[in-house]
Each structure stands twice: as C-alpha cells, then as structure tokens.
Design a protein around this nucleic acid. Structure first.
Lengths: 157, 157
DNA sequence: CTGGATGCAAACTCTTTGCATGCAT
DNA sequence: ATGCATGCAAAGAGTTTGCATCCAG
C-alpha cells in the first residue's frame, strides 16, 4: 500500500470509522476495522461471504452473522453501500461515490457503470412525498457482452 | 375504474399475451392469463405469494413455482417488471411505464415514485460497455414519512 | 466492570429444481 | 399425439435470530 498524497476517497485509515463508532457509543472491534479495510482494498463490490473468506487469515473464526452485522453497520454509517441485484447474494461496496451497476441475467456478472445521472429530481420527489432518502441504487438488467454474443450464436445455429 | 377511451397502457385484454406466447411457441394457459389479469387489476406491485393468494379462487391449487414461472415469463415478455428491494420478497408490477420505488428500511413499505428521470445516458453508457439492457430499476432507500416521524419522537424522548 | 459485540447453531424466508402428471395445441 | 406447463415436494441459497461467551471502553 503506497498511498502517497492522493486525495483518495477511501483513505485506508480506519480512524474515521473509530470516530464514527465512538460518537454513537459503539465499539471499534477488530472485526469491524478489518472488514472495512478489506472492503476498501477491493476495487469492486463483494458479497458478505467473499469478505468473510478474505478476512479469514486476519480474523480466524469470524462468523457469517458478524460479517453481515459489520457490513450493515458500515452502510448505516455511510461508509459502504449495499446493492441488491436480485441475482444471488447482496453486494457491498465501499465506493460510495454515485455509480450504477449492470447485472447480466444470464451469467450473474455485475459491473460498475459510471454514468453522470442527476438524481436530484428523485431526491426532491421523495422529499415531497415525506420520504427521507438515504440511498439511491440503480440496477440495469440485461445481457453482458459475452452472453449477448453467445445468445446471438445460439439463435444463429 | 372507469376506462372510457384512454390510451391505457394496460388493456385488461389478455389477447396480447396469447399472441406473444403463441409467437414464441408457448402455451396460453389459464394460470398465465389469470395471473397477468390479477397483476394488472392491482394498482400496485405485489409479491408472488400475494398473487398466489389472490388467484386462489379462480385457480384453486395453483402452486408457488407456477406463479413464479408465470411472473418471470411476463417480465421476459415485457408485460411486467420485477423489483428487488432487498427487504423481503421480490415485487412484480404490471405498471411497465418508467417509475421508481421508495423502500422504507424500517417498516418495509414500498411506494411508487413517479419522477421524470432521463435514463438515456444510462442506456448509452451500458450500450457503450457492450451491455444489452432490458430493464432499469431505481430503488430509493430511507425512512417513510411515518417511520421518520416515529424515529424523531424516539430521539426526542 | 458492564453492556455491546462476537461465535455458533439453528431457524427462517424466499426461490428454484426434479419429476410425474396433465392439458393446450 | 406431442411436448410444454403444471403441481407437489423437496432442496437450496441467503440472511437473520437467540443465546452464551467475550472483550472494548
């Protein structure tokens, strides 16, 4: 890890998490710190189970419920997002900056889509309905490039 | 509802479904026709199980797998959408016109949000990545009006 | 110390699969 | 007649709950 002076949106410094937890009267456990660091280390979203396997060396014996609890807490603290694709397990992502996800309904592949999408109208509309929005997730379903090609070949045959 | 001559997007006529099925070499079974009609009769989205209960009088003994199969087929035919809120069962909705959904993370309530949202940039971005998009679902998470009020009261106490 | 957090196991919900039967075409 | 669709049961995946133990503050 050679973070020099980049204005990285995710400083691999858990100090912010410790502060947020203490401000809420909650504990900065090794599980929470390691899980956040692992989530940030990854370039992409990951499932709870993938995270659990990744932290096994640093935190032997970490249980599934603990991983879910830690990830859900990170979401609540605004340090992560949860993406429900409807295809398999939920994904957790430390990239909190706005972006969308494509989900291939054939192979289940999920990719980031960085699209400038103005969600202000959504926030305004939700607010107008008395709804306090904390997260907006947009999921695009369809076929990934590979599966679209494969389907085309099948139709041709 | 007094449909007079409105260009309603959902004519309660199953003829279109019969045609679509036959064009694919598939059968127009009573289950499929009734399930589509029930989904259209409702003003709001519904879970597979809610649909199953609603059609029980018209189709006694209809099984859960059949309901899921029929609903997923309707989605594939473009006559319905599936919304994965991540809170409980998936929702199926015959309102195919673009709209979004708010999900209360406290009580699970789901409401429509009719917001003019330009998804063309998303479709373009997906297309540029070689992804063939067939559906775009936007889910806003947060607290509904009632739960926000209740939470506020709790904080005050 | 003390209450919040963990680990374990088990329960639970939602959804899909396998297979024999049935019915739309 | 043909084979797609159904019903039933059962499995499966993912997530949550209950409770005893543990440890961060």
């Amino acid at each position: 890890m050679t973070d020099i002076a980049l204005p990285h949106p995710h400083p691999h410094d858990p100090a912010d998490l410790v502060g947020l937890l203490h401000a809420r009267g909650q504990r900065a456990t090794p599980q929470r710190l390691v899980i956040l660091r692992e989530l940030r280390r990854r370039a992409h979203h990951a499932t709870a189970d993938e995270i659990r396997h990744s932290v096994r060396s640093a935190l032997p014996g970490t249980s599934t419920p603990t991983v879910y609890a830690a990830l859900d807490l990170l979401v609540e603290l605004g340090l992560a997002r949860r993406i429900d694709t409807g295809a398999g397990a939920a994904l957790y992502d430390a990239r909190t900056e706005p972006h969308q996800h494509t989900v291939c309904r054939r192979c289940g592949r999920v990719d980031d889509l960085d699209c400038e999408l103005d969600t202000q109208p959504l926030r305004d509309a939700a607010d107008g309905a008395g709804f306090s929005a904390t997260a907006i997730e947009t999921v695009i379903s369809g076929l990934c490039a590979d599966c679209a090609a494969a389907t085309g070949e099948m139709a041709r045959a």
